[in-house]
C-alpha cells in the first residue's frame, strides 16, 4: 500500500511539474485545452470567394488604466474561434500623458499592398491600441503582446506578416493552439495577415500574390450549426444515450472500484 502511494505521489509530482513547465512555455492566452471537440465556424471573408462566407466581424474593447499602467488586454473578433485576437500583459503599452483607458480595435480591411511572396490566406486585420483620445500606444520593450490570426479552414502552413511603414514584414510565427491558428509575439502593431508561401496547403489556393483574400478550393460549409429539423443532433444524442445506458447497466451489475492501481 505504501509502495502504491509512493508511486502515485511521485507520478502526481512529476505531472504537476511538467504542467507548470509546459504551461509557462505555452503561448499566452492558449486555453487549458487538453481535449474537446474542434468545431470551427466557416471562415468569413471580407471579399468572399464563390461559395465562401462573408461579413467578418470586428472588435472594439475598452479597459480602464489600472495603477498607472495599461491593464491586461484581450480583444477578439466574434467568430468561433476568433479570426483575429490581441492578447497583452499588464503594462504592455506605454501610456500617453493623461490616459484613462485603453481602446483596442480589430477590423478586417482591404489589403494595403500585395504581399511580396506567397498568397494571403484570409483577411488582413488592422489592429490598433489607442487611448480614449485616439492617440496610438506603443508596445513597451520586454512586454508580451500576442497577435493570433486564424486562416481559412485547412490552411496549416501559414506565416504571419505585418504591414507597417509601407512594407510587409514576415514575423516569427508559432502555432496558436489549433492547426489553422497562427500566433506571434508582436513588437509593433499594424496590419496583420496570414501568408502562405511554398507549397500551398489545401485551403490556401495557389493563385498569384495579388494581395486579395484567396478562395479555398473546397467551399466551406454553409453553416456550422445544425439547422432546425436536422436529424443529426438526435442521432448523436441517441447514440450517446445508448452508450451511457449501457455503461450504467454495466456499472450497476459490475463490481465496485478496486483500490489497487493495477486493477
Amino acid at each position: 500500500m505504501g509502495h502504491c502511494r509512493r508511486d502515485a505521489g511521485l507520478t502526481l509530482a512529476i505531472g504537476l511539474l511538467l504542467l507548470i513547465v509546459a504551461g509557462r512555455a505555452a503561448p499566452v492566452g492558449q486555453p487549458p485545452l487538453y481535449d474537446g471537440l474542434v468545431i470551427e465556424d466557416p471562415y468569413r471573408y471580407l471579399s468572399p470567394p464563390a461559395g465562401g462566407s462573408g461579413s467578418p466581424t470586428s472588435a472594439s474593447d475598452t479597459a480602464d488604466v489600472q495603477g498607472g499602467t495599461s491593464p491586461l488586454v484581450y480583444s477578439g473578433t466574434l467568430e468561433n474561434p476568433p479570426q483575429a485576437q490581441l492578447i497583452a500583459d499588464a503594462g504592455a503599452f506605454g501610456l500617453p500623458a493623461g490616459t484613462a483607458s485603453v481602446v483596442t480595435t480589430i477590423r478586417p480591411i482591404a489589403p494595403p499592398a500585395p504581399v511580396p511572396v506567397g498568397t494571403l490566406a484570409g483577411n488582413v486585420y488592422e489592429i490598433r491600441v489607442a487611448n480614449e483620445s485616439g492617440i496610438d500606444m506603443t508596445i513597451q520593450s520586454g512586454k508580451t503582446v500576442t497577435v493570433v490570426l486564424r486562416a481559412p479552414n485547412g490552411v496549416t502552413n501559414g506565416t504571419l506578416y505585418r504591414y507597417s511603414d509601407n512594407a510587409w514584414v514576415a514575423l516569427e510565427t508559432t502555432n496558436g493552439g489549433l492547426p489553422d491558428l497562427f500566433a506571434t509575439n508582436a513588437t509593433r502593431l499594424g496590419d496583420f495577415a496570414v501568408v502562405v508561401t511554398g507549397t500551398a496547403s489545401p485551403g490556401a489556393g495557389g493563385g498569384p500574390s495579388l494581395g486579395v483574400p484567396v478562395a479555398t478550393p473546397t467551399p466551406p460549409p454553409a453553416s456550422a450549426q445544425g439547422s432546425a429539423g436536422d436529424v443529426t443532433p438526435w442521432i448523436v444524442i441517441g447514440l450517446v444515450a445508448a452508450a451511457v445506458a449501457a455503461g450504467l447497466l454495466w456499472t450497476l451489475f459490475g463490481s465496485g472500484e478496486k483500490s489497487t492501481p493495477g486493477g
Binding site: T11, L12, A13, I14, G15, L18, L19, G23, A26, Q30
Partner: peptide, 12 residues
C-alpha cells in the same frame, strides 16, 4: 508538451 504533462497528471 501540454498534453504529455496532462497525461502524466491524469495517470497520477
Amino acid at each position: 508538451p501540454l498534453d504529455l504533462a496532462a497525461g502524466v497528471w491524469l495517470a497520477g
